[in-house]
Design a protein around this nucleic acid. Structure first.
Lengths: 256, 256
DNA sequence: GGCGGCTGGTCCATTCAGTGGAACGCGGTC
DNA sequence: GACCGCGTTCCACTGAATGGACCAGCCGCC
């Protein structure tokens, strides 16, 4: 029983996670073979595990198409950190959208990536935005740099070690340039990204601190570069991030 | 290695689901012992499985408190059925809220329960509503009866067999009364619940059919009984449910 | 301080649940 | 008919999962 080829899964649970994470947001139903391929597991193993996951409603099957099931959706709604943050942030985000007209994002850090927790579409015409639950590179987005600027040196090293992949011609890829950027973000309280993540899109983000001083998230507004008033947007974002921070319950347990 | 005491879990995956489902929406962090108790599993087993789940980021640990992790949130956002439905429904729901002022819910059926997929708060003062991801009894809510009315007789039997629990003094608990209700819903196209689920709250719901004719969800508006205009609300809900159905992409694969 | 009760973590012999290659049945297309 | 891909099933093998017992730390109490 040697480990699978992908993500050196060893336990049953690791195999299961390999299966669940083989699902992508744009595929409508995977077959067993495709799933086994993506997860790097033998077909027979996948077939058996999938049967259990379907029984537990973590997967749904429609003929030979498998999809993520209702239970996963339900559980996802129970995750506290995203839920509490969203609840506190939605009014602030709505007002921020109203003030700026741009797309508003809230994201938290997960290792060397940012995970999008809430999105509010502005009246900018197109520019599809990071999905809720989607991941963004930490080095190439204002959201990421807003939190990275206030994180430990080790965190920055980790991000650098993960590779500063270029997503557009303007993406920062030099480690020392990134560090200089982060220092600037610390001074100004605002991180700005001009077409580093997607061509034609600019973004301003600010870190969100809980009353305890803990860094918990980042808030951003993005829009088309040609209509982007960086100064005004930055001021609005910084203000909103500050107000959001004050709304957070000291990040201690509210039920105690 | 006899099975655990709760939910006759036999495989590792079943044990894992028992652990994940031990989390409730209102507890802020569980310890290993409490978790083992709820899941009906030995502490040592829970301790080991939890370690893997934390490593895979399905759980997060903060000292001795365990919470559902980011990965669960991410995966939950990938579940297609809720995501597609929500996307199609949000504009319709917004307009429905605007027309009626009540709380708007969208739910789908899962066996003998309804799972809430989207919620939009109306301007009714209090009356907290079913959470997104929350479950509602199928027999005691307008949402549930709206879909049950158009489901197979076997489905109704299943719901009856699951037990018609009374939640308020007005909850329908007699199987034949329920069946008569369902026939009335079929005739009128609208299900109404007056304080059967919660005292002081009334609700009107309509089934949502895809263009293919498949029954996919239910849409509802709820509000305080003393301000509830059943006829006007019912008309608005029925209209919105019809328009939502037409927005659904024939429930075939949109990417083909 | 010493106790009892709680917490979570770790051992380790036992053994059963999980494994996966091979074989199978099915529904397509060439 | 041969072939290919699909998903499922079989079954001997074995190592991964098990869980009772034990250990260590923490807190409150007497």
């Amino acid at each position: 029983m040697r480990g699978g080829s992908a993500s050196d899964a060893v336990g049953v649970l690791d195999r299961m996670t390999a299966i669940l994470e083989a699902f992508d947001h744009d595929d409508r139903g995977l077959g067993i073979s495709e799933l086994a391929l993506r997860a790097g597991l033998p077909k027979s193993t996948v077939s058996r595990l999938v049967a259990t996951l379907v029984r537990q409603r973590y997967l749904e099957r429609d003929g030979k198409h498998l999809r993520l099931g209702l239970r996963v959706f339900e559980l996802g709604q129970l995750a506290e950190q995203p839920r509490d943050l969203r609840a506190a942030a939605l009014p602030v985000m709505a007002e921020l959208r109203h003030r700026t007209g741009g797309h508003v994002h809230l994201a938290i850090r997960d290792r060397h990536e940012m995970v999008c927790i809430a999105v509010m579409r502005g009246n900018a015409p197109a520019q599809p935005i990071a999905r809720i639950g989607g991941r963004l590179p930490i080095h190439a987005t204002a959201l990421g740099r807003a939190v990275l600027a206030h994180a430990s040196a080790a965190s920055v090293d980790e991000a650098v070690a993960a590779g500063l992949t270029a997503l557009t011609p303007r993406t920062i890829t030099a480690p020392d340039a990134l560090r200089r950027q982060l220092a600037a973000v610390r001074r100004s309280g605002i991180a700005v990204d001009v077409e580093e993540f997607a061509v034609g899109v600019s973004c301003a983000a600010s870190p969100v601190f809980a009353p305890s001083g803990a860094l918990v998230a980042a808030l951003s507004v993005s829009g088309r570069t040609d209509r982007f008033d960086a100064d005004a947007t930055a001021a609005a974002v910084r203000d909103a991030a500050f107000r959001l921070g004050r709304r957070l319950g000291g990040d201690g347990p509210p039920r105690g």
